[in-house]
Amino acid sequence: MAVGVASNVDFCTAIMERRTVSAWTEDSGDAALAEAARDGDRGAFGLLYDRYARMVHGVLLARVPFSAVDDLVQDVFLQALGRLRSLRDTACFGAWIAAIARNRAHDYHRRSRNDVELTDDILGDEQTGGGSSKPLRLASAPAPDAEAAAALAAIRSLPEAYRETLILRLVEGMTGPEIAARTGLTTGSVRVNMHRGMQKLREKLGSGVRG
């Protein structure tokens, strides 16, 4: 019996160690990480956070004011943490958390009762470009924030699908294949959205160059 008890103790210790000392690496798959997180492994969830924070940030930035995005990123992951048990296919973690982020952005507008137009504390009135039909141009040497705001406003005036893809590419620095892998969209959809969106953006920015 003593052997049996020792085995049980070893077994329990092993389980506890697995929960407290994550052996996960950058190469670990989403499904394994999500399953481990669901079993209580905070380290695994942390890796998922590292992997998906940029994508969630970009999805939100396409829809809500810049000043609100950082807080909402945390909200989205906390919401995901609380709902991990409802994620049926752990391999779909990316598409799932992207959906939570889009929903959180909708919710932000519903709660603020302001779904008319995005405004931003980093945007100057003359740079929002929101209903203007004039082509927007990047200023020659303005303050960095104002220049970024003008470019962001131009992207935000595009249709939603283009907006999200372009922000993930140009703001978050993700490549097309990475966007497809992280958001769960097909490579074809991302490619179409990215190229057509870029074409529209060039028109908005008053450029003659075509992508």
Binding site: A37, P144, V171
Partner: peptide, 25 residues
């Protein structure tokens, strides 16, 4: 032109650190 946009917009990229998450029960 894309490089210029990347440089300008990259300032708005996610730059946060991983927060402390509550225990997962």
């Amino acid at each position: 032109e894309i490089q210029r946009l990347e440089s300008v917009l990259g300032k708005l990229a996610y730059s946060g650190a991983r927060p402390g998450f509550p225990d997962i029960v």
